[in-house]
């Protein structure tokens, strides 16, 4: 525990994230807030996915399922049962985790590519199910009544609130990732990633560990799903269970380097920056997907350990600051 609390990396990280969060508030800049909302959201998605992907070595293409399910549960209790935002966030997070725990008990028996395929199947099943599930509004989804924002001082204030809450969640994601990485549990996950059969013989209860990792990875996406769709005002299946977005989060982790805490953060921020700068440039706009694809291919072929992995390898001195 001492090692965690005294780590310079932890404190520098918290300070940077907190600074990023207060920056649009201090300058009262809604455009910047919207940009940073996406970046913080992707950082949390990438950090949480990294628990099952980076530490445990299970390739999950369906991470967005937890975001979508949490969003649906949260918007449902807000719009139909008239609950407030905070209980809705709890419902979203716990709902996503319970779902992950039950699902994990079934699909975490699969290994390698079979697991990856199953997660694609789960994503598409949820997408198709949501479109047919009438309590969730079927294909049209659910819309929040505008009145709900009044509870939080009007729509303008509600957006700031959503941002502040997201920033808090992101900092929690960061601290939790760091604690997991430095814990016995995290070491167990990494052993599973390296060699699951050896892990079992070494005394690691692999089914339990894998499922705990999967369940933990689902919790924060469930919460930010509620925040995102609260800010949006409505939720519909295509946006909640968007397979492309799952894969984008994977790409972010690859870009930064998986199995570290700073990798997903730097990867998510870089990816969002690159994408938004490509989209605003009229010349590059139509080619932004091509450029992103070429970039991804180049990273995979030439720097497969990601930006952070590469820096850590080149400059060992910075390792304490780049865990």
């Amino acid at each position: 525990m001492r090692r965690i609390i005294l780590s310079p990396f932890l404190w520098i990280g918290i300070i940077i994230l907190a600074a990023i969060a207060t920056w649009p508030m201090a300058t009262n800049n809604p455009t910047l807030r919207e940009e940073l909302f996406l970046i913080l959201m992707f950082i949390t998605m990438a950090l949480s996915l990294n628990i099952i992907l980076g530490y445990t070595g299970y390739v999950n293409f369906g991470h967005i399922v937890f975001f979508g399910l949490g969003g649906y549960l949260g918007i449902y209790v807000m719009s139909t049962l008239h609950w407030g935002l905070f209980p809705a966030m709890i419902v979203g997070g716990i709902g996503a985790s319970v779902f992950a725990f039950l699902l994990g008990a079934a699909i975490l028996r699969l290994r390698g590519a079979y697991f990856a395929l199953a997660t694609i199947g789960i994503n598409e099943t949820m997408l198709a199910l949501a479109g047919n599930f009438q309590p969730f509004g079927g294909a049209t989804g659910l819309t929040l009544n505008f009145r709900i924002y009044k509870l939080y001082g009007g729509a303008g204030k509600a957006l700031w609130l959503a941002f502040a809450l997201l920033a808090a969640v992101t900092i929690i994601a960061f601290i939790a990732s760091f604690i997991i990485e430095k814990s016995k549990f995290g070491l167990g996950l990494m052993v599973i990633r390296e060699d699951e059969d050896a892990a079992m013989v070494m005394g690691i209860p692999t089914p339990l560990f894998k499922n705990l990792a999967y369940t933990a990875s689902a919790f924060l996406p469930g919460i930010i799903g509620v925040l995102y769709f609260f800010k949006n005002g409505n939720i519909e299946p295509g946006e909640a269970f968007n397979l492309e977005m799952s894969i984008e989060v994977l790409v972010m982790i690859m870009l930064g380097g998986f199995g570290t805490v700073s990798g997903p953060i730097i990867g998510a921020a870089l990816y969002e920056e690159i994408r938004s700068s490509l989209i605003v440039n009229p010349l590059l706009q139509s080619m932004h997907l091509v450029i992103a694809g070429l970039l991804l291919l180049a990273i995979i072929l030439f720097v497969p350990i990601g930006v952070v992995g590469w820096i850590r390898q080149r400059v060992p001195a910075v390792r304490r600051y780049l865990e």
Partner: peptide
């Protein structure tokens, strides 16, 4: 880390 893991879960 390899050996620590052995001790941890032994």
């Amino acid at each position: 880390e390899n050996v620590t893991a052995g001790a941890c879960f032994g």
